[in-house]
Design a protein around this nucleic acid. Structure first.
Length: 467
RNA sequence: GCCGAGAUGACAGAGCGGCAAAUGUGGCAGACUGCAGAUCUGCAUUUUGGGGGUUCAACUCCCUCUCUCGGCACCA
């Protein structure tokens, strides 16, 4: 049974959905004011795998991701470059969609832009004011943090102690400096919407709550984001929602992914230590990037380096090679019971690991354990074709969840036309090798290498693969 | 200052009362090979950040100290 770590109860909890086989999952999306960096990639690739695993298990997943398309940073960026805020956000949102597409992050059901939900946001704020949790002041509206007793439950923060080190700029419009803004009063050169409190725009925290409640109502299954969002963002979301509905908890599973670090520090725009997803994809195939992003414990920080990427690339290649060899088994020997036992064990371990709060790394470890045994059996031509087919099928199921394998190109396979051509070339090369005309045979090999066909001479025959 | 996470072989990184080290990378040696690559087999490093406690038994639980990272009202 699937267990997920819930940061609110700080426990691994068996996953039980609220509405039968439907799962409602919300993940905090980006604020599109610049190119997405690989810290974003880690988060969204992970949640993509979570959604795909839930789907694999038979759930119908409604994966909702918000887009904060109006925000201080977008406005600042727009003023800087002399364009409209909307142009900045749509440009970078398009770029985000593009790179996520390349990374095969395709499980999101709906991307919801904040500016499409202004009336829902205003409604929510009205309700909060009516219940005494919010107050208008000087054109803005603030949330009265002290009135919500559970504030701090998720992060463990003790409100009284927090004030000492608080770095917030004092704001006279607030009753209490801990209060956060729900509606920001209009300032010159800023986008605005009309509201009962005058022109203005929504605060950051209220957008997510409004969007999530619009589709999922007062109680839903999963809410994900980075650990850096726990405080204050997710505390605020809980406060806003529960203040209105009195339903606790608002969300059954709060999931938080660890940061991606570079040289020991969190990768972020403000530290200027970021690498864009685009740049990384210029150096590594998307499958390798995905493998790197999920081959770790998602609760912990992940240290990024090009050395670590190269390591990931080498081990990823072993998996790809294994799958390729399995799809081109051309013998059928006696069923190997011992091998079958190892294969079954690997499969079992893989799904156990996935069920244990998506321990993807542990899942891959299970495959790596059986990998040398399969390779050995293949080179000794032991084992039945069916058992290899079954394991190939298992790897395909792994791929439904993780999407780490490149597409198997049928045009290049042995049955395909290009495959037949390569086979003929190899046959000729064999003849040359038998006659010890190695200079010529090596030349064929190097020509094929240039077309990304790698040649492997083994005991019994020559194998080739598309790279 | 407060809140949270963490410290394990050369590196990355699991295990969380019972043979320390899964798994990956790298190193060395060997097998295969005309060469190359891939693959396979074997070997090595260390005693789990420091100190104290509980226990027949501690990497694992408790206390304490040191250090690292994240959050503290911008952020995945």
């Amino acid at each position: 049974m699937l267990k997920l770590y819930d940061s609110l109860s700080k426990k691994n909890k068996p996953f039980v959905s609220l509405h039968g086989n439907r799962v409602y999952m919300f993940v905090c999306g980006i604020t599109p004011y610049d190119s997405p960096h690989i810290g974003h990639a880690r988060a969204y690739v992970f949640y993509d795998v979570l959604a795909k695993y839930l789907k694999y298990k038979g759930y119908n997943v409604f994966y909702l991701q918000n887009v904060t398309d109006v925000d201080d940073k977008i406005i600042a960026r727009a003023l800087e470059s002399g364009v409209k805020a909307g142009e900045v956000s749509s440009k970078y949102f398009a770029e985000y969609r593009e790179v996520m597409g390349k990374l095969k992050v395709d499980s999101v059901t709906l991307y919801a832009k904040s500016t499409d939900y202004i009336s829902e946001i205003i409604d929510l704020i009205k309700k909060l004011i009516k219940k005494g949790y919010a107050y208008p002041s000087d054109g803005s509206v603030y949330f009265r943090v002290n009135k919500f007793e559970k504030f701090g439950e998720l992060s463990g923060q003790i409100m009284e102690k927090l004030e000492e080190g608080a770095s917030i700029e004092p704001d006279d419009a607030k009753e209490d400096q801990k209060d956060f803004v729900l509606w920001k009063g209009y300032k010159e050169n800023e986008p605005y919407w009309d509201s009962p409190w005058g022109r203005g725009r929504p605060g950051w925290h209220i957008e997510d709550t409004a969007i999530a409640m619009c589709y999922f109502r007062e109680h839903y299954d999963i809410h994900g984001g980075g650990v850096d969002l726990i405080f204050p963002h997710h505390e605020a979301e809980i406060a806003q929602a529960e203040a209105i509905t009195d339903v606790h908890p608002f969300v059954n599973y709060w999931m938080h992914i660890g940061m991606l670090n570079i040289r020991g520090e969190k990768m972020s725009k403000s530290l200027k230590n970021f690498i864009t997803v685009k740049d990384l994809l210029n150096k590594y195939p998307p499958e390798v990037v995905r493998f790197f992003m999920i081959n770790n414990e998602h609760l912990k920080p992940l240290e990024f380096s090009f050395e670590a990427m190269d390591t990931a690339k080498v081990s990823h290649e072993k998996l790809v090679r294994l799958r390729n060899s399995l799809s081109t088994v051309d013998f059928d020997s006696e069923f190997d019971a011992e091998l079958q036992r190892e294969m079954d064990h690997a499969e079992e371990r893989f799904f156990e690991a996935m069920d244990n709060d998506l321990s993807v790394r542990e899942g891959f470890a299970a495959i790596f354990t059986v990998l040398p045994k399969i390779n050995k059996a293949l080179s000794d031509m032991h084992g039945g074709r069916e058992q290899y087919n079954n394991f190939h099928d298992f790897l395909n199921r792994v791929n439904l969840i993780t999407d780490i394998f490149p597409e198997e190109d049928r045009g290049y396979s042995e049955a395909g036309r290009i495959g037949t051509l390569i086979d003929s070339l190899n046959q000729y090369r064999e003849e040359l090798r038998e006659k010890k005309r190695y200079e010529e045979s090596d030349r064929i090999r190097s020509i094929l290498e240039k077309s990304n066909i790698s040649i492997e001479d083994t005991k019994k025959k020559t194998k080739w693969n598309k790279r």
